[in-house]
Nucleic acid binder design. Sequence first.
DNA 1: AAAATTATACCAACTGGTCGGTATTTAATA
DNA 2: TATTAAATACCGACCAGTTGGTATAATTTT
Lengths: 203, 203
Amino acid sequence: MPKQERAEETRRRILEAARETFASQGYQATSVAEICQRAGVTKGAFFYHFPTKHTLFLALLEDWLAQLDQYLNSEHYQGNSVAQRLYAMADLLRLGLTQGRDYLPMFLEFWLQATRDPVVWQATIEPYRRYRTFFANLYLQGVNEGSLRNADPNLAAVATVSLALGLLLQGLMDRESINWDEAAPAAFRWVLSLTASNSTEVS
Amino acid sequence: MPKQERAEETRRRILEAARETFASQGYQATSVAEICQRAGVTKGAFFYHFPTKHTLFLALLEDWLAQLDQYLNSEHYQGNSVAQRLYAMADLLRLGLTQGRDYLPMFLEFWLQATRDPVVWQATIEPYRRYRTFFANLYLQGVNEGSLRNADPNLAAVATVSLALGLLLQGLMDRESINWDEAAPAAFRWVLSLTASNSTEVS
DNA sequence: AAAATTATACCAACTGGTCGGTATTTAATA
DNA sequence: TATTAAATACCGACCAGTTGGTATAATTTT
């Protein structure tokens, strides 16, 4: 096996093992030795690929964010009205609920680290700001084209992102009490229906 | 079994020191020795009052939840219309934003622990369920009295709690980009205004 | 004095990280 | 092509420091 391939494989396995272990036990509670054992790799290999445990964490964060962005951008299909586009985006919630199932602890871990580490904070918080401006623009467009009720776009964007965030968080934390796969998109669409310009609603 | 004054004082100081240290550094990253030093107490005293570090954590959680409940119930003033009551509750967001400022990391810490420890999970998640039923009842009442638009109360409750949760979380994480003290209640009231039965809005 | 409370000294286990050494692949050379 | 040199990827024993927790002695309170 060529040298480079094997190295990449090792690195991949460390990342995968770290993702699993961080997710189920948390960053601090996870020892480097544990990650190595799970990855079937020795400490020597670990510190060859990652100078420190924290570096590994950051690498994981970047992967996560890249994936997140991919999802959001994939939904940028245009052509319909803004109201309809937003309506369709509710399905992203269902996706996020099933997708994020195993990674909720790690999600929380990122936020937690973000409150202390400026680098993590920057990387974690920046997406939310981007989403807000994204939705603000969308709302403005919707108002202009007449499919959405007149309102402050920034306020609407804040509300939209907050609603989605809260739905995801609750759905991931408390999986049993409600069928979130249905409730989350439904709740989202309900609020959306209130912002539509005409009273005729789609159900 | 009457407790002695000094002993109670010691216990109180340990709790306070732990609250501060957990909040700023996290549970795992905080050592018992550190808590003791901050509290001006030795390890002997610590382990006399709390059999384990984890027990101390649970005690803190209980205190927190009791305080949270107190806030929610304090807002139960009746007499006005449901729409107006909900409208007034938006101010609780501002309170939560300033109040929770220092305790966000600990908040996250609770959630994180909740994903692993069933005891913590139960205590952490149960309030949200209670809030949902609380708001569902409120909405039902509002629809019946005619101050709120007709809608599925459960859906409305889910949306309301999610919105509040998302606003709080964003406001606590990202304090700089927006003046959340104003934006959070405003966004909340905006959504509320959409649910009001008549189109006449209060601004 | 008896009981409750706090102080001191200590420990085994574990932590992230280092370091000298090794095996295998790649590159240079003859 | 055969040989050699060098770079890459990895191993695992080891380190200094920290951890939660304990044993026991000293001190206060009743």
